[in-house]
Design a protein around this nucleic acid. Structure first.
Lengths: 206, 206
DNA sequence: CAGCGAGGTTACTGGCGCGTAGGATGATGG
DNA sequence: CCATCATCCTACGCGCCAGTAACCTCGCTG
């Protein structure tokens, strides 16, 4: 039971924008560690070495603070996947790069992936919308490639895309939960192979 | 906006066990619809046509009530997958049956799958343990088959198992979110084909 | 060096919701 | 017809926490 990684030196004054960034950082730590519900605004403020009203001078409420972080990381995921798909036109390499994108995202600093993949609060509409949108966008980008290179109808391509997204997401979270027992690039390759064998030359055969 | 499916006739007396079952039913409706946090014990009681203390005569607290439901459905999932894997020794059919197991689970009465796949409250240890255990057991049973029929090492087989679980789970949830735009058996076959092509004859080639 | 504004603080309120104390009421056996 | 027990009710206590009111202080500017 080591003492909590103590709050920053209380009493330093910061310009508005720097303070905002710092608050977002503190909020991320707390939201990731505790989830939305168990996270107290008091604790976020304390971790930033500041009192609660300061938080409310930067964000209208707890939900908006959370949404700011969620938006940030949901967008990061989508961008990573987009970049992966755009990095080559060789579909086999595309699959490899896409899987790596998910593993990179999950391995990212501060376990921020939890905000997107393990949010409590999906029952609240704006949160649900954002989480689903991130997933859908990823699946859709993949479906796009599938639809272009096979004769699969759009519905089917979407379903396949979502299947691949699920494979990547869940396996990556599992890999991390095992504290990287398998080297990252090995895990990526195993899953990429599973995905590529599954998807390649999809139109013909059964 | 139709009126809520109103509470049962207030005032009927029930023997202990019947009441317990009814309370579990009411609780499931509310937890599924609202999630753990937004669900109020008052509302669960009201939906059962009963007052709150009755709830506390059957369950020591809100968490235990929730866990009772979670256990029930987590076990149901694991059993469905186990049966699917045991239903044949033809691996291709096994994959087909396993995918169907997930789609069946998700399509089950009352959207109970949400308790397992979309629980808010994963930040609470006993809940997290149960959800992870269900996932792990499914993945492990699949990994077992993979390890037996290929030369893949255990680590790798587990990762592959979890990849397939993720594929099934996420694609099934997506399929349902589209309100069954694709016929169930069609979706199952598409995903089963993706899985089977991915996993079959895994040892050799890349 | 006065005064003003950005940045920060303490201390409170108001509501919500879990859990409980204490009492009523219907069935069942003597 | 009376006692007894299980079942169920009304009504409240109490802690927690998001959000707010009112006040402070540093440092810059004229």
């Amino acid at each position: 039971m080591t003492a909590t990684p103590d709050a920053r030196p209380r009493g330093t004054r910061l310009p508005r924008l720097a303070r905002r960034r710092q608050l977002l950082g503190a909020a991320q730590e707390v939201f990731v560690a505790q989830g939305y519900h168990a996270a107290a605004m008091d604790e976020i403020a304390e971790r930033a070495g500041v009192s609660k009203p300061v938080l409310y001078q930067h964000f209208p409420g707890k939900l908006e603070l959370y949404l700011a972080l969620l938006d940030e990381h949901a967008e990061a995921l989508v961008n990573t996947v987009r970049d992966a798909l755009g990095s080559t036109t060789d579909n086999k390499l595309r699959v490899q790069a896409s899987m790596q994108a998910f593993y990179d995202f999950v391995a990212g600093e501060g376990e921020a992936y939890r905000l997107v993949f393990e949010s409590d609060l999906r029952n609240v509409a704006p949160v649900r919308a954002r989480v689903e949108r991130a997933n859908t966008q990823c699946a859709e980008m993949i479906a796009q490639v599938i639809a272009e290179d096979t004769n699969a109808p759009a519905d089917e391509a979407h379903l396949l895309g979502m299947g691949l997204v699920g494979m990547a997401e869940v396996s990556a979270r599992y890999w991390l939960s095992q504290h990287r027992a398998i080297p990252k690039d090995t895990a990526e390759k195993i899953i990429a192979r599973l995905a590529w064998r599954g998807i390649s030359g999809f139109p013909r055969t059964g």
